[in-house]
Design a protein around this nucleic acid. Sequence first.
DNA 1: TATTGTTATACTCTATAACTATA
DNA 2: TATAGTTATAGAGTATAACAATA
Lengths: 140, 140
Amino acid sequence: MDAEARLGAQVRSTVGRLYRRFRSERPDGSLGDAALDVLTHLQKTGPQTLTQLSERAGVSPASMSQSVNRLTSAGLAVRTPDPGDRRKVLFSTTAEGDELAASTRSQRNAWLDSRLRELSAEDQATVAKACELLDEITGA
Amino acid sequence: MDAEARLGAQVRSTVGRLYRRFRSERPDGSLGDAALDVLTHLQKTGPQTLTQLSERAGVSPASMSQSVNRLTSAGLAVRTPDPGDRRKVLFSTTAEGDELAASTRSQRNAWLDSRLRELSAEDQATVAKACELLDEITGA
DNA sequence: TATTGTTATACTCTATAACTATA
DNA sequence: TATAGTTATAGAGTATAACAATA
């Protein structure tokens, strides 16, 4: 096995472990990771169409439709018809959605942030740089 | 937001994006990521009990029981009663499981490996170091 | 009693296929 | 015809609760 293959396997392993850890932090009855990700994104960008959301997340429109349904059912987001093209629907957060997104994010980041705080400044920079490199790889 | 909080959010975002990309590479009819991870682990370590597998993966024993059921149903792993403690069951790979794990892993790592190969040696080292740091954080 | 594992049930997330409405 | 979105259905992965078998 060459060096790149070993590195690929390591990245895959590390990412899988971290992701499962993140996912397991969901308190009972709260939003799942996909729905929370959409809510956070809507907060940052403002109203988005279903197609925009599904392309950004890398999932099918049908899958995204169900994710936003969870948000609208819970009163965290709303649908607004696009006045210019009535095939389109714009999704946006409600005040309740904004509040929930902020509090949930800070709760879920607490564990990771406290651990990262224990690293040296140099190691923190290494992690930040690696994230940039990996984001480029995924086209983010 | 302080520097650690920003870094935590960045790590979470990068990991989520990479994980979803990995998961989407599953060809139709093939093993899911959780089952493949167990198969790979069994290959490396040899026979393991259900409790060992569930603790290592960070999931409930009930969840792991269903994952190994997918493997045994497909003929990729087998159950063996522990002779010394008949409450325990040892899971191990079959020859078919070994073959499938090897071929599936190389297929799925191909995309990531080719991208990592485009990075400079220094950037590759940065990614490797970041994986080590993050593995320590998750207790791996 | 405690430990090991399984089954029953339910929720999230994902996909494909088939559909409606609008352009 | 093509595009935007939805619904129906199915499978993977997860959890909790309730259970059986063994220590």
